[in-house]
């Protein structure tokens, strides 16, 4: 195995984050913190509590998850799209490195960035809203699984995208709506029965619900189903990436 190759990609990707600290770290932390200030501290104090949790505290897991999803997808997508765009992908394809090692390097780096951002955002949130973490290990497990899975999803988008518009279209038009409608700001139990059923087709619901359970011990759907859903999505993404490398889809001619 060429793990040194994977580590080389990982380090190069992390160095890229270091070079763009303002955009990669500061911007998502600030924008997510604004949600806490506005919805948590300002408006939240006038809202009813949900499932016995103050509104400010209720939205923290959803917001952290939203940021993690967006950042994982866009970081991993740009990570592999950029070499395709500037032509340096030839180096990856002509090096003695397997698909698994390439994916480990890119997805590992994107997931690491998401975890760092997640930690920063949760720390920031603690300044604005009272929160507790009942199941810290489960919380960490959800954070890691979500970061890795959605980085893998972003990696697929990066390979698929032929231009910058396509690169942005999936995060903007699919991930953002699914996250907003996935219970970031509300419990799905407040929806009419029909829309509750529709919502269950949104995979993000399971992530946010499970993640919120690790904080407050309450969830919209069973924690086991949440874990199964994310494991299933992970397996699906892994299969797609494997097929892409096997066939050379949009990588080789």
């Amino acid at each position: 195995m060429n793990w040194r190759g994977a580590l080389t990609i990982y380090k190069a990707e992390m160095a890229r984050t270091g070079r763009t600290l303002m955009q990669s770290v500061l911007a998502p932390v600030i924008s997510t913190s604004l949600y806490f200030v506005v919805f948590g501290a300002a408006i939240g104090s006038r809202m009813e509590s949900i499932d016995g949790i103050g509104y400010g505290a209720f939205i923290v897991p959803g917001l952290v998850m939203m940021m993690i999803l967006m950042q994982s997808v866009s970081n991993a997508a740009i990570g592999i799209y950029f070499p395709k765009f500037n032509g340096t992908v030839y180096e990856l394809l002509s090096a003695p490195i397997s698909a698994l090692e390439i994916v480990t390097g890119f997805v590992g780096a994107a997931a690491t960035k998401s975890l760092i951002l997640g930690a920063l955002v949760m720390t920031t949130a603690a300044f604005f809203v009272p929160m507790e973490i009942q199941h810290p290990l489960a919380m960490l497990a959800f954070l890691i699984m979500t970061s890795v899975t959605f980085s893998l999803f972003g990696f697929i988008i990066g390979i698929w995208a032929d231009n910058f518009e396509q690169l942005n279209i999936v995060p903007m038009l699919i991930v953002t709506p699914l996250t907003f409608l996935g219970g970031s700001f509300y419990s799905i139990s407040v929806l009419p029965p029909f829309w509750q059923t529709v919502t269950l087709f949104n995979p993000v619901v399971y992530l946010i619900s499970g993640f919120r359970w690790s904080f407050y011990g309450v969830s919209d759907v069973d924690i086991g189903i949440s874990l199964a859903a994310i494991a299933g999505f992970f397996a699906l993404c892994l299969f797609i990436v494997w097929r892409m490398f096997k066939t050379g889809y949009r990588l080789k001619t």
Partner: peptide, 21 residues
């Protein structure tokens, strides 16, 4: 001409070497 414009020369060469394990 396929290069990452923002990389330093020595880093670019070190990266290639690392990719080859």
């Amino acid at each position: 001409m396929s290069i990452d414009m923002f990389t330093k020369v020595k880093d670019a060469v070190a990266y290639s070497r690392g990719l080859f394990g």
